[in-house]
Design a protein around this nucleic acid. Sequence first.
DNA 1: GTCTATAGTAGGATAGAC
DNA 2: GTCTATCCTACTATAGAC
Lengths: 199, 199
Amino acid sequence: MINSRKTPVPMKQESRKQEIVNAAAILFKEKGYSAVTMRDLATAMGIKAASLYNHIQSKQEILSTIIIELAEEFTTGMNQIVNSDHSAIQKLENIISLHIDVTLRNSDGLASLNNDWMHLEEDNLLYFEKMRNDYEENFRQIVISGVNTNEIKPNNIEIIVFSTLSTLRTLYLWYPKQKNIEADMLKKDMISVLLKGLV
Amino acid sequence: MINSRKTPVPMKQESRKQEIVNAAAILFKEKGYSAVTMRDLATAMGIKAASLYNHIQSKQEILSTIIIELAEEFTTGMNQIVNSDHSAIQKLENIISLHIDVTLRNSDGLASLNNDWMHLEEDNLLYFEKMRNDYEENFRQIVISGVNTNEIKPNNIEIIVFSTLSTLRTLYLWYPKQKNIEADMLKKDMISVLLKGLV
DNA sequence: GTCTATAGTAGGATAGAC
DNA sequence: GTCTATCCTACTATAGAC
């Protein structure tokens, strides 16, 4: 709920809810959704558990806020890439770039997206699974078109899709540990390693 | 139920505990350690929760049985590879092979090793973390030696280590979905994709 | 080896005072 | 917006009968 007051306010509404969501993402990353209690979260916020419910409706709402927002970000980014008229290799480079951008902006939330999506309920679970499947299928089709145009070596398609996606999906685990690496350098090196190989 | 008789039987002791551990690994893979209850596990085994405690001491013991055994398997395998006199590339190929072998044998347990190790307690947590750090450091040193002998392109070392390990560590998520791929073919293709690149 | 019954604790969430 | 108090449910684990 954005701007739910009588007097209109310039910007940055609902920041208390966002603070809770951000704090929750950090805890979910450390222990997983199921192992984090509302009391843990309240302690991290410096308040009591009951007070959380003035800002959020349920623990489940926190999880879906984290995950659905990120999944939509990936979906939007992928759609732009798919609808561009770049080569397959350029599209893959843009996908790597997309993952790095999202990881820099919200690496905590990506932990939930990767490990706790199965705790989403009802419609949100179905919605997430559809976005995830579509994302993978778009990725696969880009790889296939790259093989067809001889841009990509004709290895087993599924292994290419899996190995590349698994690296991009676990960036969130690794990036925060790297102290002195800039986004542009990271993109360049990831493209080099993922697309051009080690040897 | 195997071997539940008065007369002693040659081999395969404690199989009831192993059945419980195996059933638990499947459930832990689906929902994570914290979200799986002893009632869930008992239902999967076709008994009541209280009956589980005739075979195991605690839920925690199940988790540590799954994880520590696998971690020791990786540690043993890595030590053999490190102490061999192969080239860096050959060592990396053997590491890929090790991961594929372990994944084929126990892909369910690998989910716990990857996602639920932080729920280990006390000594087991420290023991696990030491094995994991040592494993990564051994991996890193092999990559470094490969760069020094010009076997491996001098990209950012950490990116090479991270991208390769993240693919190998998430094999368990992907392999069971592949119907018609044999271990040898998988090894060959993984080596090709991970070491020689896509382009 | 499995059962019923239950102890003891901790979880998500609500009511109502301030 | 936060608090205290509390409800109700569900959890891990134990005791003791069969």
